[in-house]
Amino acid sequence: MLTVRERTPSATLPAEDCSIVTRGLTKRFRSGQVAVDALDLAVPRGSVFGFLGPNGSGKTTTIRMLLGLVAPTGGAWELLGTPMPGGTAAVLSRVGALVEGPAFYPYLSGEANLRRYDAADPAADPRTASARIGLALDRVGLAAAARKRYRAYSLGMRQRLAIAAALLGPRELLILDEPTNGLDPQGTREVRGLIKEIAAGGTTVFVSSHLLAEVEQMCSHIAVMRTGRLVAQGPIAGLRAGEAVRIRVETPDLAEAAAVLAASGLAQVRTGDGEVSAELGADAPERICAALVAGGVAVRGLAVQRPSLEDVFVGLTGEGFDVNG
């Protein structure tokens, strides 16, 4: 099921089941530029919500508005069921955030930096601070570098420390802006694993990214921004369902293969360079394979292609997803 901008998402989901709800959230900068235009987001509790869009599409401005750093010029929003910005003091202690990259005091150690942020949270218990800081550092794999000065941290370590800062207390919602920026492939995998683990504990994770593949691998829901407007949002499975699964056969016998596929009742048979493909529909791929072999087709390779999100967006918006914005 897919919610396109024209439909109101909050109408399809009761607000109390959402960790984040925005209604017509708008930010027009003094320059007149509209960074975010009438955004209606509904982030279900317990979801891993991918907030997608090219750089400059308004993701970070949205996150800054959600956290009360930037005042919207229009609209309203709720975090964890509490209207904002009135509930800032009460709600933000239960929200962990990573906004536009790490920012720490270079002359302090990683541990001292976390202690500093913990001290700023009026709801944090100083008696458990050391335990919570140790746990957070441990979870992001920085326990060994806890006493090292931040200045000496690598880019990946800095990003991890920022994630640790978001995990300082029990959080009901994590807002992570491009959490894998600057991480190597191994670090990216680890962060993905960490996010899944956190979500498994019941915490809603709202994660922005300009990388489709990344979002596809860890999110249950997504929303897509383009130039300040919401293009689509909904459960990822629902978005995928709009696009058909295809079967692709590698073979030198193109004409025969195409004939067998058509005879098997498959639609949209396409012949390409050394391969033939068709919409699989509900058919079992092994049945098609047997039919091909029985039809005397030399099958060199057979693959079932599930639509990637990229295909979904091309189908949905009629445009490619230009990651370079």
Binding site: G46, D125, T128, L167, P170, I198, T204
Partner: peptide
Amino acid sequence: MSTVSGQETVSIGT
């Protein structure tokens, strides 16, 4: 109240 897993042992707030 849902919490980040693994952190139930430490309390925050009053």
